[in-house]
């Protein structure tokens, strides 16, 4: 029972993170298309932002793992 609920929680966390990182990727793509010369900076910023979101999502996954 607990395991199933935890899996659902982990799934929800992944959905949120996926949407967020997708938005970042979209923004980075558009930004790079508009200003190709700023591509390097945009990429670094994108990776940092994605890492921060991923961190939040991983909290959820770890909590789900804890409750497994």
């Amino acid at each position: 029972m607990g395991g199933g609920l935890a899996a659902i929680g982990a799934g929800l966390a992944v959905i949120g993170a996926g949407l967020g990182i997708g938005q970042i990727g979209k923004g980075a793509c558009e930004g790079t298309a508009r200003q190709p010369e700023a591509g390097g900076d945009i990429r670094t910023t994108m990776i940092i932002a994605a890492a921060l979101i991923e961190g939040a999502a991983l909290f959820g996954v770890v909590v789900a793992l804890l409750k497994n």
Binding site: A51, E54, G55, A56, L58, F59
Partner: peptide, 13 residues
Amino acid sequence: FALMIRLFANISA
């Protein structure tokens, strides 16, 4: 703390 969890969870995952 996020730094710790991120590395741990990414590699473990």
